[in-house]
């Protein structure tokens, strides 16, 4: 079966998805991608003229909340930071990203 998708494209997708991939992983994922795309290609066989997409199944609409402060759910600073590996004087810390100021 001929390849439906190229390694280059898969690499682009990995960047878009913020997924770090080794060369080995890139190759195996490209093969897996191919396999999946072959399976899901059958959608075009179904006629969907006049059909609206079904984004929700419940039929619910207008579910909103009143503009009230929920003190019970709000964390203290300690709770908010409790699971982070890197914090500094009340902040989460990440390495500086240089190109997007």
């Amino acid at each position: 079966m001929s390849a439906v998708i190229s390694k280059k494209l898969v690499d682009e997708i990995a960047h878009l998805a913020n997924i770090p991939l080794s060369d080995k992983e890139l190759s195996s994922i490209t093969a897996a991608f191919d396999e999946t795309l072959q399976v899901i290609d059958n959608l075009s066989e179904i006629d969907t003229t006049g059909i609206e997409p079904a984004h929700h199944t419940t039929g619910l609409e207008n579910i909103m909340r009143e503009d009230v402060v929920d003190n019970e759910r709000m964390f203290s600073q300690e709770e908010a930071l409790s699971q982070a590996k890197k914090t500094n004087v009340g902040y989460f810390v990440v390495p500086r990203i240089l190109h997007n100021d």
Binding site: I13, A17, N18, P20, E25, I29, A32, Q83
Partner: peptide, 19 residues
Amino acid sequence: IRYGNDRSHFGDEAKRRIM
């Protein structure tokens, strides 16, 4: 960043599905 480990810790299946 806020909890857990970075994205290199995802297993193969998760990586495939995300992509």
